[in-house]
């Protein structure tokens, strides 16, 4: 069942009088409950693509269709988890998670019940009255995930959500994400520049090119979970994808040397 269809998507930014083709002719179809990783070096337009699906930016050409409707604005059917967490610092953990539900206009009782259940699921219950500034990065990202789960978006868009975390926290959150995905049946688009993270998580990996941002390569990952990052199949895939990503990274690096990065 197709959930998201992207056709002929193009995004051109104006920067210092120059046109930057962040996205060019992107065509992608994502199935319901599929886990897709967008992989590529910085500047390859993977976050731009995610933002276009989220409805934060307007396409220069082409369209994103979700459940048969063209995306023209952000909405709670596509919950976003940001790398910078974007928790509201003036709200406690519980309030942050409740925010989307309060907007929906649910009754106090329903909101509390739902928020409490999620806080328990994500092991955040003891922290419900804390403010975000008193939480570690991994904890903050769990709250951000709970906040999106609360509004029950069928689609989760994740923009390098674990990029700022240390390796151990990162692995435990990856495992938690896989568990959440099984439990809540989400369609997930996950942006990362970590090859290993993409292989560990995804059903399908989409490698993107550096400017213009196009789709370079697509790879289905059929290994069963939990995947062993030390296993032969894992590493064979890592070698292939590593070469592809490196090519793009080098093009990026050359641009930076010329001062255009």
């Amino acid at each position: 069942m197709e959930k998201i269809r992207i056709t002929g998507l193009q995004k051109i930014f104006q920067s210092a009088g120059q046109e930057i083709h962040a996205l060019q002719d992107i065509n992608l179809s994502i199935a319901e409950v599929e886990f897709v990783c967008l992989l590529g070096p910085s500047g390859c337009g993977k976050s731009t693509l995610l933002n276009a699906i989220a409805g934060f930016i307007e396409a220069s050409a082409g369209e994103v269709v979700v459940d048969g409707r063209i995306v023209d604005a952000p909405g709670p059917d596509r919950g976003v988890v940001f790398q910078e967490y974007a928790l509201f610092p003036w709200m406690t953990v519980g309030k942050n998670v409740a925010f989307g539900l309060e907007i929906k206009g649910l009754s106090r009782g329903d909101i509390d019940e739902r928020v409490n259940a999620l806080l328990h699921t994500l092991n955040l219950w003891e922290f419900r009255d804390r403010f975000p500034k008193d939480l570690s990065g991994g904890m903050k990202q769990r709250v951000a995930i709970a906040r999106v789960l609360a509004i029950d978006s069928p689609i989760m868009l994740m923009d390098e959500p674990f990029g700022a975390l240390d390796a151990l926290t990162r692995r435990s959150l990856q495992d938690e994400l896989l568990r959440i995905r099984r439990e809540f049946c989400k369609t997930i688009i996950f942006v990362t520049h970590s090859i290993e993270e993409a292989i560990y998580l995804a059903d399908r990996i989409v490698v993107m090119t550096y400017r213009p941002g196009t789709i370079k390569f697509e790879q289905q990952v059929a290994m069963p979970h939990p995947r062993d990052p030390a296993g032969a199949e894992f590493n064979e895939l890592k070698r292939i994808l590593g070469g592809l990503v490196m090519e793009e990274h080098e093009r990026h690096a050359r641009d930076e040397m010329r001062g255009e990065g």
Partner: peptide, 21 residues
Amino acid sequence: GIYLRAARNLGAGSSVIFRRV
């Protein structure tokens, strides 16, 4: 701007964004 994005993403309209963000 990220707070505004997050709020819009969670379904907030302009009056809610003004009051609560």
